[in-house]
Amino acid sequence: ENVVSAPMPGKVLRVLVRVGDRVRVGQGLLVLEAMKMENEIPSPRDGVVKRILVKEGEIVDTGQPLIELG
């Protein structure tokens, strides 16, 4: 699984990683606000951040690609 998608609609509050960062399974990639709750979106696997597909403040839909892992 190379693309991390939004599990719910919401607003991207914070991106916690940068392109080139090594991440571990379960590590927070970004914080999504949904229904006034902050939800940290975890990495599904170990890898390297290849691309960040959203910006802070952006509104996303369920299933929208957020981050690509390499």
Rank of each mutant, 00 (worst) to 15 (best):
E1K: 15
E1W: 15
E1A: 15
V3N: 10
V3G: 12
V4Y: 06
P7E: 13
P7H: 00
P7D: 07
P7R: 00
P7M: 04
M8C: 15
M8I: 02
P9Q: 11
P9V: 07
G10A: 07
K11H: 03
K11Y: 01
K11R: 05
V12A: 02
V12R: 15
V12L: 03
L13H: 02
R14Q: 02
V15W: 11
V15H: 12
L16M: 12
V17M: 04
R18L: 09
R18M: 13
R18Q: 01
R18N: 01
V19E: 12
V19W: 07
V19Q: 12
G20Y: 13
D21Y: 14
D21S: 10
D21G: 00
D21C: 14
D21R: 14
D21Q: 09
R22F: 12
V23Y: 03
R24I: 07
G26P: 10
G26L: 08
Q27G: 11
Q27I: 02
G28W: 08
G28A: 04
L30C: 15
A34N: 02
A34D: 09
M35I: 00
M35Q: 02
M35C: 14
K36S: 08
K36N: 12
E38D: 05
E38K: 03
E38I: 01
N39K: 10
E40T: 10
E40Q: 03
P42L: 08
S43A: 03
S43G: 00
P44E: 01
P44A: 10
R45T: 07
R45I: 04
D46H: 07
G47V: 13
G47P: 15
V48E: 06
V49S: 11
K50N: 03
R51M: 05
I52A: 03
L53M: 07
L53K: 12
L53G: 00
V54P: 00
V54H: 11
V54T: 06
E56S: 12
E56M: 06
G57P: 06
E58A: 12
I59F: 09
I59P: 05
I59C: 14
V60F: 02
D61L: 11
D61P: 05
T62K: 06
G63F: 08
G63N: 10
G63T: 09
G63W: 03
G63D: 02
G63S: 12
Q64N: 00
Q64R: 13
P65D: 12
P65K: 14
L66K: 15
L66F: 13
E68P: 15
E68W: 13
L69Y: 07
L69D: 04
G70R: 13
G70W: 02
G70N: 03
G70C: 14
